[in-house]
């Protein structure tokens, strides 16, 4: 593990109230993300991956436990975090340029600086020629790339990606995986990415958080210590894949990381419910 933890998720639990009934969606989630690390979160549908990203980005602060960014508890959305949603969520009435520029709306940049940053980020995701196009004129992959540019333009320290490549064909997908790696290495961005695809997780990340559903829990954390560029056909690559698969499908919960087995200490001493 690298030196500093940028993101520290400590004993996070989340309960939704549906029809007056509490539904526990996340229970005692615990993992860390180091500076410039690429972490993927994997787990079957409904195990709370999107919910977890919503908590990290600050859209929902009604949870138990702590999510610390640089040691500070997250209380609201902030410039240090960017998110690419599962659906790209570009505003359909704004051009690609205008959509990306929204990422800098809260900053004090001059219009010229905004323009330059937008152009640079469209370049980064290879959409330089499509700044004036509207979202409905883009393919799914292009729209996802535009959404990535919008999330990156404010230079967040951490980029959250919710299955950004989920709905794409395998060729586009492989291409965008390499682009993500390129952006990660070039921009020195920390990334937390949700995916359903084990191979994608092993190909991209430094660490894989494997979750299980009902309620969403961390089943295990698998480190991936392979050098880049990775060869999907190599024996050690396949070995990591097998390990993730094993922890995902059956096997007893794995613990490769330092997830505490006892109740974590709650800093402010308030009574909190854990599983």
């Amino acid at each position: 593990m690298r030196a500093t933890n940028l993101l520290d998720i400590r004993a996070v639990s989340k309960t939704y109230i549906v029809d007056d009934e509490p539904v526990e969606v996340l229970r005692n989630i615990h993992f860390t993300v180091a500076e410039e690390e690429f972490v993927t979160v994997i787990g079957e549908s409904g195990c709370g991956k999107s919910t977890l990203l919503r908590l990290i980005v600050g859209l929902d602060i009604g949870y138990c436990g702590d999510i610390l960014l640089d040691g500070t508890r997250i209380a609201a959305p902030g410039r240090d975090r960017g998110i690419v949603f599962q659906d790209h969520r570009l505003l359909p009435w704004l051009s690609v340029e205008q959509n990306v520029a929204l990422g800098l709306d809260a900053s004090d940049e001059s219009p010229a600086a905004v323009k330059q940053a937008v152009a640079a980020n469209l370049d980064l995701v290879k959409l330089a020629d499509f700044g004036r196009a509207y979202p409905h004129q883009l393919s799914g992959g292009m729209a996802q790339r535009a959404a990535i540019a919008r999330a990156l333009v404010a230079k967040p320290r951490i980029l959250l990606l919710d299955e950004p490549l989920g709905a794409l064909d395998s060729q586009t997908r492989a291409y965008l995986q390499d682009e993500l790696l390129r952006i990660h290495q070039r921009g020195k961005v920390t990334m937390v990415m949700v995916t359903h695809d084990i191979e994608e997780a092993v190909y991209l990340s430094d660490k894989i958080v494997v979750m299980e559903p009902r309620p969403g829990r961390v089943r295990g954390i698998v480190p991936v210590e392979l050098p880049h560029p990775r060869n999907r056909a190599a024996a050690d690559f396949i070995a990591v894949k097998e390990r993730v698969l094993a922890s995902l499908v059956n096997g007893p919960p794995l613990c490769f990381d330092a997830a505490p087995k006892s109740r974590p200490i709650v800093p402010d001493g308030r009574a909190r419910r854990f599983g």
Binding site: V57, L59, R81, I83, D87, L91, L102, G103, D105, A106
Partner: peptide, 13 residues
Amino acid sequence: VRYIEVARVLRLR
């Protein structure tokens, strides 16, 4: 709501 959430995440003025 998904567009409102985008606005919140980007902290639009």
